[in-house]
Amino acid sequence: MDLLFFKIAIVLYLGASLGYLIFLIISSGAQPWIGFWCAVGGFAAHSLSILHRAIFSGFVPLATPFDAVSFFSWITVGLFLMIRYRDPSPIFGSIVTPLAASLLLYASTLSYQIREPIVPILKTWWLPIHVVLAIAGNAIFALMATGGLMYIVQERLIKTKRIGRLHHLLPSLETLDTLNRHGLPFGFFLLTIGIISGALWAGSVWGFYWSWDPKETWSLITWLAYAVMVHQRVVLGWRGRRAAVLAILGFGLVMFTFVGVSALLGGHHAFDNRPRFMGPLGL
């Protein structure tokens, strides 16, 4: 019962993925309303699930890996539903909804038990500030990578003059590059203050701001990667295909930092070892 809404959300996201898949395979003219409404329903159930977790834990529901991954997926779908009104091309959904579904499936393998009593360092407003900023940044990077992937495919199709159904389904290069152009500063800004807020939080709890914990190190590497991206875009005028490739590579780093580091390298963002350093998951 405690994860009922969460399970509904998984089912609906899977339904949406299937709906979009069917749309891609058979239909070409009709709007993929099944996928879209499943995604909307999934997002609603997902929102209820997060609300339920908040009531259940009595605080911002971000203190477990389960909640962090779930929240990441939630923001990504939310952003997708928002930009859908700017660019109604349905193919976006066929990438975002499977991503959301697989993130939730991954989350369901993670621990969602909130340890009692909650570690004091998690009972602070630094938690939502740090985690929400970092995860919102990740969600923007996820959409940028999605757009980047579509850009590369669309660009290839136009260059090689294969103007078929896929070409018609994909948004214009301009639209996809605009996504990259607008997403980059937002994402980079959120990542930056996400890292700074983490450092300030660490400073307020432990007295030192930076301890080269693996998550911190990889966050810094990710930050540098996106800083390079901003530089190439603003100073050298990189755009289009190169910007798309960078967005995909950058998101690879983001995902590694987000889910890979805790699992593989430990550190005080991880929950399972070194209980003394029990800290929030997130970047």
Binding site: I158, H167, L170, S172, L173, E174, T175, T178
Partner: peptide, 13 residues
């Protein structure tokens, strides 16, 4: 029309 459509797919509006 093909030219216009392609132009739109490349350049947007």
């Amino acid at each position: 029309y093909v030219a216009v459509e392609l132009a739109r797919k490349i350049l947007g509006d």
